[in-house]
Simulated scan of single mutants.
Amino acid sequence: MTVTIKDVAKRAGVSPSTVSRVLSGHPRISVETSRKVKGIMEEMGYHPNIMAKSLVSKTTNSICIILPKPAEELFSNLFFMELIRGIVTQASRSGYDVLISSGANEKEELDAVSRLLKGRRVDGAILLYSRKDDAVIDFLQSNGYPCVLVGRSDKYEDMLSVDTDNVMAAYDATSHLISMGHERIGFVSGPPNLIVSRDRLQGYRKAIEEHGLESRPEWIVEGEFLQDSGYRAMSFFMNLPNRPTALVVVDDMVSFGVLRGLNELKFKVPNDLALVSFNNIPLAELSSPPISSIDIGIYHLGYTASQVLIQSIQSPNKETGYTNRFIIPHRLIVRESSMYSPKK
């Protein structure tokens, strides 16, 4: 038999309206009464009707994560798994449930997030990507829905966002290779429509220019954030008549593809080609050889994004005094893949 608010109220010796106020966190309910009622709820196995509660409070205590591509492809990259872990951990601690939304293309993503927000199934959204001219971001901003972007937006500079300084991170990665004596340094990039790809490419170019090194178009290859992109890039790079001696790679998963391609071609890392990557997922340390990588604090990116979104939901008009853009510090973790100075 289903336990109701009236059953809880009768056992606790209070009115049903008092039980409702306990559920909503009403400030006039004493700590003693709140503890007593919640204890009886637990004893009786009472679970509040979330749908009914949301109709009264006009909130759902749920947020959604908008994935940038079909889930089966995305979850092959441990970066997103760790990012989502940070989001879910903080949301759970704040009493929020998390829904995940994805689509095969931008239209499907837009349809999915529109259904969730217009249908009042979630209170806000976290986007795990930032694209140039993004229709999903346009929809969220034009309708005033609470949202946080992991990354940054060129179009909406005042949009709530949590990010790494990707320009400086790539600058630091490239500068490390230069400090090891490399002068011919290539770059394996991600999709050009993603702002993270553009920012990391910008940081690489800035370091090359400031150190007076040569930059060649054939030393820059674009792809996806997948192992296969790194694997395919090696067939191209290692057949160049004047190939790089080192690479900056946009993502650790892409680096695994680079290592696989080099191994099949009988080249050694770092002796034949040194590399530095991004994200510092746990497997980077366990690869052969261990990969030097920029640690961008993936878990903290997700945790902070969730925290910022929930604060904006609970206090939509509150002036925090802080910038809308939160930057998580990065650091270079040097391992064997870059610890080699090329012969002059």
Rank of each mutant, 00 (worst) to 15 (best):
residue 286 L to M: 06
residue 112 A to S: 15
residue 343 K to Q: 08
residue 109 E to D: 12
residue 303 Y to T: 04
residue 66 I to D: 02
residue 120 R to H: 15
residue 53 K to H: 12
residue 228 D to N: 11
residue 50 I to D: 10
residue 341 S to C: 11
residue 247 L to H: 12
residue 225 F to E: 10
residue 39 G to I: 11
residue 233 A to L: 13
residue 199 D to Y: 05
residue 54 S to L: 06
residue 311 Q to T: 12
residue 153 S to W: 05
residue 312 S to Q: 12
residue 243 R to L: 09
residue 107 K to F: 04
residue 95 G to E: 00
residue 145 Y to Q: 10
residue 91 A to V: 05
residue 175 S to T: 09
residue 52 A to Y: 07
residue 115 R to S: 08
residue 123 D to S: 08
residue 160 L to K: 07
residue 7 D to V: 12
residue 7 D to W: 13
residue 307 Q to C: 02
residue 153 S to K: 06
residue 315 S to G: 08
residue 289 P to S: 04
residue 249 V to F: 13
residue 7 D to R: 07
residue 79 F to M: 09
residue 109 E to M: 15
residue 252 D to Y: 02
residue 296 I to D: 08
residue 34 S to C: 13
residue 110 L to H: 14
residue 259 L to S: 05
residue 229 S to D: 00
residue 74 L to N: 00
residue 68 P to L: 08
residue 164 T to Y: 02
residue 251 D to H: 12
residue 110 L to N: 12
residue 336 E to R: 14
residue 334 V to M: 13
residue 307 Q to R: 15
residue 170 A to E: 11
residue 189 S to L: 08
residue 316 P to Y: 01
residue 252 D to K: 07
residue 95 G to H: 00
residue 154 D to I: 14
residue 57 S to K: 04
residue 325 R to E: 09
residue 251 D to R: 04
residue 223 G to L: 09
residue 188 V to N: 01
residue 313 I to Y: 08
residue 203 G to A: 12
residue 50 I to P: 01
residue 220 I to A: 00
residue 94 S to M: 14
residue 178 I to Q: 10
residue 280 N to D: 15
residue 18 T to A: 12
residue 318 K to A: 15
residue 131 R to K: 09
residue 37 V to C: 13
residue 191 P to M: 02
residue 1 M to W: 07
residue 121 R to V: 00
residue 24 S to F: 04
residue 132 K to C: 00
residue 305 A to R: 05
residue 293 S to A: 13
residue 197 S to W: 01
residue 173 A to Y: 04
residue 175 S to F: 07
residue 214 E to S: 15
residue 5 I to V: 12
residue 287 S to A: 15
residue 17 S to A: 11
residue 5 I to M: 11
residue 38 K to E: 12
residue 202 Q to M: 15
residue 46 Y to D: 14
residue 75 F to H: 00
residue 20 S to A: 06
residue 138 D to N: 08
residue 58 K to W: 02
residue 137 I to V: 11
residue 29 I to Q: 03
residue 277 S to T: 14
residue 102 S to L: 02
residue 44 M to Y: 10
residue 211 H to T: 05
residue 46 Y to P: 11
residue 186 G to Y: 10
residue 79 F to A: 08
residue 315 S to V: 01
residue 46 Y to S: 12
residue 334 V to A: 14
residue 164 T to V: 13
residue 174 T to F: 11
residue 343 K to M: 02
residue 194 L to I: 00
residue 75 F to Y: 05
residue 9 A to E: 09
residue 282 P to T: 03
residue 261 G to H: 06
residue 103 G to L: 06
residue 297 G to M: 01
residue 272 D to N: 05
residue 51 M to P: 01
residue 66 I to S: 07
residue 139 F to L: 10
residue 340 Y to A: 14
residue 294 I to S: 00
residue 235 S to I: 03
residue 324 N to K: 15
residue 7 D to Y: 10
residue 71 A to W: 06
residue 38 K to D: 03
residue 5 I to C: 03
residue 176 H to E: 09
residue 187 F to S: 08
residue 322 Y to R: 15
residue 42 E to N: 10
residue 198 R to H: 07
residue 189 S to R: 09
residue 47 H to T: 15
residue 145 Y to N: 07
residue 94 S to C: 09
residue 223 G to Y: 07
residue 261 G to K: 03
residue 5 I to L: 11
residue 162 V to P: 01
residue 330 H to N: 05
residue 206 K to W: 07
residue 85 R to S: 14
residue 245 T to A: 12
residue 102 S to N: 14
residue 63 I to Y: 10
